[in-house]
Write a protein that binds this DNA or RNA. Structure first.
Lengths: 161, 161
DNA sequence: CGGCATCCTTAGGGATACTG
DNA sequence: CAGTATCCCTAAGGATGCCG
């Protein structure tokens, strides 16, 4: 237990889930491509133009997203046309939606255009606006300043060795 | 209304809250510095070593975070020592915590070390684990695939012109 | 339409050394 | 301890052109 604090820095550096998540989705164009995918975009050209990146960059990032399992490439065919591929979110990718919603609502609050947000996210069942909120397993709403940080299993196990 | 779809791409490109948010916090080291700030880190050296970046980079990013209003620099003094500055989260910065929590839980699920997460986030009041969840204004829990995307005020106003 | 190859520019970031 | 200055390397990304 004595080394816990001494090792903390090194551990968090190499073993932080946020850092690991950022290794996958830590750059702008990747997140924007996922935004598009979550909004229903499926075709290569649409991704490139809507995100505002060049085709080579779109190709590289999409390929990486497929390799990382966030997008799935699958064939489809419009009637009378030849088969093409489209990119759709996997489960792994869809679970990043809360990140996107949280980012969007921060942007709406702190970096919005004067005219207001260009998009509203609504609950499909009832039409009410959707937000990302913090909630504890006990069912309470949690504010950002009500968090405690505790050592998790990874850190405790490492310390035991 | 006819131009709405034609303009949509250009609008989303320049006027998306996610893109604007990413203009501020869209890179790895910035997010990791905010992670540290939200965990209670306040001093320059601690930021650099815990995030695992060099001092010049830490200096540049911290300065930018202060300029963007996410961190505040304020003087403090340990008893018997000279005055120093520390970096603390502003409200604007603290409101990014849901993004960090959402990223962390994605990383815990999809990119964790075999030993498990190194940190647990608990509700200060009751000790239960904290998660980022989606909820609509009507009070319903919302799944990532239950979202509707509707044009917001910014897009509608632009179209009216 | 859905890409890949090539070339070039810029931004991010490490190492080292130095200052208040 | 809290940075700044300098140098250098690498990754991200735009532009253009070509290919199935």
């Amino acid at each position: 237990m004595t080394d816990l604090l001494a090792n903390r820095d090194a551990w968090l550096m190499t073993n932080c889930s946020i850092a690991r998540a950022l290794d996958v989705v830590g750059n702008r164009s990747t997140l924007l491509l996922l935004r598009e995918a979550s909004l229903g975009t499926r075709r290569f050209d649409d991704f490139a133009t809507r995100v505002g990146i060049s085709e080579p960059v779109a190709a590289a990032r999409l390929k990486q997203l497929v390799a990382d399992g966030l997008l799935e490439r699958r064939p489809y065919r419009e009637p009378g046309k030849r088969t093409r591929d489209e990119y759709v979110l996997t489960d792994k990718g869809a679970q990043l939606v809360p990140v996107l919603v949280a980012l969007r609502q921060w942007g709406d609050t702190w970096a919005a255009d004067a005219a207001g947000p260009s998009v509203r996210i609504a609950h499909h069942d009832c039409g009410a606006e959707v937000h990302a909120v913090l909630r504890c397993a006990g069912g309470h709403d949690v504010e950002p300043d009500e968090l405690d940080v505790l050592p998790g299993p990874g850190l405790l196990r490492a310390d035991a060795e």
